[in-house]
Computed example of a mutant assay.
Amino acid sequence: MTTWITICDTCKREDWDASLGRTHGEMLAELIEGAAPEGPDVRLRRVSCLMGCDHGCNVAVQAAGKLCYTLGRFEPTEEAAHAILDYARMHSDSDTGRVPYRDWPQGVKGHFVTRHPPLPE
């Protein structure tokens, strides 16, 4: 089953400066998109605003019939992009979307904002 990484491309961290020319969310999206090609297990999409502005650089990790998560407070770095992708692959491999804490990539620890149960069928 496909896990989607939904990346907010309008996110700005508190240290955002207009001279950067683009938002932190755009920078993180570019890094995630460039880190690995999409495949059948993990797909990417951008949205404008996940309404998590206090958390800056937000992404949602989602799949039908599975627990879904919103993560935030990332810096737009290659390390963050790789950790998000690694976690999404683990989410995809899980039947329920639950990934044991001990298996989480270090780069996503401390970044979870919300967890949503799957929608009823």
Rank of each mutant, 00 (worst) to 15 (best):
D95N: 08
L44F: 12
P117D: 12
E33W: 14
N58H: 06
E79T: 04
M27V: 12
F112M: 07
P76T: 01
G97Q: 03
P120N: 09
W16T: 00
V108C: 02
P120I: 11
D93T: 08
T96P: 09
I84Y: 00
H55W: 13
I5P: 06
K66T: 07
G39F: 09
C53V: 05
K12C: 10
L50K: 12
L20F: 14
E14W: 11
H91Q: 03
A83S: 02
A64W: 09
A80Y: 00
P117Q: 14
E78A: 15
E75F: 01
H24R: 06
H24I: 00
A63N: 07
F112A: 08
S92W: 08
P117Y: 11
S48L: 09
C53Y: 04
T114F: 06
R98D: 13
G107T: 02
F74W: 02
K66S: 06
A88R: 03
T77R: 01
L20R: 15
Y101G: 12
H55V: 08
R43K: 15
E121S: 15
L119M: 12
G39V: 04
I7H: 03
F112W: 10
G97K: 08
P40I: 10
T23I: 03
A29G: 05
H55E: 10
P120S: 14
E14H: 14
W4A: 15
A35Q: 04
G34E: 04
D9R: 15
H24A: 04
R46F: 04
Q106A: 14
G110M: 02
P105E: 02
E30M: 12
Y87R: 04
G52C: 04
C11I: 01
V113Y: 09
W104Y: 14
Q106V: 14
S19F: 12
E38K: 11
C8E: 01
Y69R: 09
G39S: 14
W4G: 13
E30C: 11
E26Q: 15
L67S: 07
G39L: 07
G25D: 02
E75Y: 02
E78L: 09
I32F: 00
M1F: 10
L85K: 08
E30V: 10
M51E: 13
E30S: 14
E14Q: 13
H55S: 11
V42P: 05
A60T: 10
G72W: 00
C49A: 09
E79M: 00
V47H: 10
R73N: 11
G34M: 02
D93N: 11
V113K: 05
G34R: 05
G56V: 03
M90Y: 04
R45M: 12
R73E: 03
G34W: 04
G56N: 02
G39H: 11
R43L: 14
H82P: 03
W4Q: 13
V47C: 13
L71Q: 03
A81K: 00
A29K: 07
G65I: 06
Y101N: 13
G97P: 03
R89V: 01
G72E: 01
D9F: 08
D86C: 05
E33P: 10
C68A: 15
D93M: 10
R45V: 06
D103E: 12
R46S: 05
D103Y: 08
R45Q: 12
W16E: 01
P117E: 15
P118I: 06
A64T: 12
A80D: 00
T3I: 02
K12G: 07
